[in-house]
Design a protein around this nucleic acid. Structure first.
Lengths: 134, 134
DNA sequence: CCTAGAATGATGACATGTCAACGACTTCGC
DNA sequence: GCGAAGTCGTTGACATGTCATCATTCTAGG
């Protein structure tokens, strides 16, 4: 079911020229002061590995959606920031995406559904990540 | 939540040397007469694209888990079949995988949870796959 | 028989993601 | 200050998946 919903929203997003990871990066970055963030912080905020974000940032940088700059406060770090093109792409995609999510997800569930879903999610996400011992 | 459960079962499976796609292919193939199937049929049965299965079959073939042979009944087709190694890998992985799924999923949900989850899944999977129009 | 069109599986070009390094840099304890 | 240890972002090597396209081969209609 997750698959079905995601496939739908991803398809809708694709029409705007952004993938879901693109959208996540842009929408998380735009919430930052100066629409700028350290790669590390950004990755942490998104729950991504630094490696993953570094790779995706490279692709998005090549497409002109974001820019990289050295972090003046930490010689190891780099700052990611939205470009004008990135801001524009996000602005174009947001209404479509929100509408898509609403139509494919939110509108289909009532309050009971959401409550049950959260309850179940809580049980499944819970606790141990250790492998099967036997 | 799906992500969390899948990550866990994938990790458990990895300990047996198989990925989740590997396991899917092997477990679907073993149900076939002669543990053999056309790539096309196999893909349809699994809900995969031919392309995807072709690619994955190549990787699994390289690892000796399955074998390809020309289809005597259709010059375009090819037959995928389990090798002894593939059968052994599946035999080794199955108990671990079932235990893993049970522990990470089934054991955590009661009858009500399952009922609710199916109800919600039904609503989300439902119907239209068309893009957002406006 | 013969040809137009459909189906099959493979593949090039990419997008996405993981993991284990690595070099550069910072920090901590002394 | 200085060296050990940790952190940062990047990268090579791969696994996985998509899409469009291709050569083959099959099939249906004449």
């Amino acid at each position: 079911m997750t698959t079905s919903v995601r496939a739908g929203t991803a398809r809708d997003l694709a029409d705007t020229g952004l993938s879901e990871p693109d959208y996540e990066v842009l929408s998380t970055l735009v919430e930052r002061p100066g629409t700028t963030s350290t790669l590390h912080e950004q990755a942490a905020k998104m729950g991504w590995s630094r490696s993953r974000l570094s790779r995706h940032a490279s692709r998005m940088e090549a497409r002109g959606l974001i820019a990289r700059a050295p972090d003046p406060a930490d010689g190891r770090g780099c700052l990611l920031s939205l470009t004008a093109a990135g801001r524009a792409a996000l602005r174009d995609a947001t209404p479509t995406h929100l509408e898509s999510v609403r139509r494919r997800f939110a509108d289909r569930l009532d309050a009971d559904d959401l409550r049950d879903l959260l309850r179940i999610a809580g049980k499944l996400d819970d606790g141990d990540t250790s492998p099967v011992s036997g």
